[in-house]
Computed example of a mutant assay.
Amino acid sequence: MLDTASHPITARWPAKHPEKIQLYSYPTQNGVKASIMLEESGLPYEPHLVTLSDSDVKSPEFLSLNPNNKIPAIIDPDGPDGEPLSLFESGAILLYLAEKSGRFLGQTKADKHRITQWVMFQMGGVGPMFGQLGFFHKFAGSEIEDPRPRERYINEAKRLLNVLNQQLEGQDWIAGDYSIADIAIVPWLRGLDYYDVKEIVGWDGFANLQPYVDRFLDRPAVQRGLLIPSKE
């Protein structure tokens, strides 16, 4: 059984409130999914800043919680059946917190599955493809002379944006009511600014996307979650 008091991660990131959900994260596109959901749901939690440096995410302490050395990760001392639970992968964390809080996962079993499919769409499509586009446009991949990798991810990003734009036609949120699908997707749409790729993917041609992002950013819990954990 997981013992939160003696878990190796507490040696580096000690818990002041071990009775609360412990969040280990950094405010990236994936990291803020967890903090926004925790703010939206009202579940009590304690955030810990885990930087993206190897000294943090590849430390023995963090690897004891997430062997994949990626943020975010959580420990819930009051997990299913009252037993502690640790989780990594932002999509899995969103689903867990939605079930635990009873919020943002729809009203019916059919709603849950429809929402889950859009979370998976982000996890398997939007996140990886946008991330690769950023690599080949802004970061080390931009030095590669062969244009094909960059063109591939530009075209795939355009395709995914079109899917979202069509889905949003006539509705405010991606799967009906506001849900974890929106919490998963919109941080990655915001990431297009960070990667400086809005112009090359034709952002202005997707009429439903900017209003969607604006609605999301108008939510007070979103505004708080975007800044958690604090970098200071």
Rank of each mutant, 00 (worst) to 15 (best):
L2K: 09
H113I: 15
G102Y: 06
S53D: 15
R215I: 08
S101V: 01
W203V: 07
N162M: 12
F206H: 13
G82E: 11
P149I: 00
E169N: 10
L49M: 08
G176L: 00
Q29W: 09
G202A: 03
Y24R: 00
E143R: 12
Q210Y: 06
Q223D: 10
K33T: 02
T51N: 09
M1P: 13
D111Y: 01
M1V: 13
M129H: 06
A73G: 12
W173Y: 10
W13R: 00
W118F: 09
F121R: 03
V186Q: 04
D81H: 13
G42C: 11
P84E: 11
K100P: 11
I71Y: 02
T4A: 14
E46P: 05
E46T: 01
G141C: 03
R148D: 15
L226M: 13
G141S: 09
S59D: 11
P77K: 08
I174M: 08
G79L: 01
L52R: 09
K58I: 07
W188R: 02
V197R: 01
A34L: 01
D111C: 02
V186T: 02
Y45A: 02
V186S: 00
T10Y: 10
K198V: 08
Q117F: 05
Q117I: 04
K20F: 15
P72D: 00
D81A: 13
R152Q: 12
K20H: 15
V32Q: 01
I71R: 02
N155P: 06
P14H: 04
L95E: 12
N162R: 14
K20C: 11
D56Y: 04
Y178P: 08
S53N: 14
L63H: 04
D204I: 03
E169T: 12
G170I: 06
N208P: 00
L97C: 08
N30H: 04
T10M: 11
A207G: 10
L189H: 00
P14D: 07
L105M: 14
V50K: 03
G202M: 03
P67Q: 10
P8L: 05
P229M: 04
F206M: 11
D78Y: 13
P27R: 01
A5R: 13
I36M: 01
R224W: 06
A15Q: 09
K231G: 07
S25P: 07
F88V: 01
P187E: 04
P44T: 02
P44W: 03
V119T: 02
E61H: 05
I200Q: 10
E46G: 03
G124S: 12
K231I: 15
I185Y: 10
L95R: 05
G176T: 01
S90R: 07
S35A: 06
S35Q: 06
S86K: 14
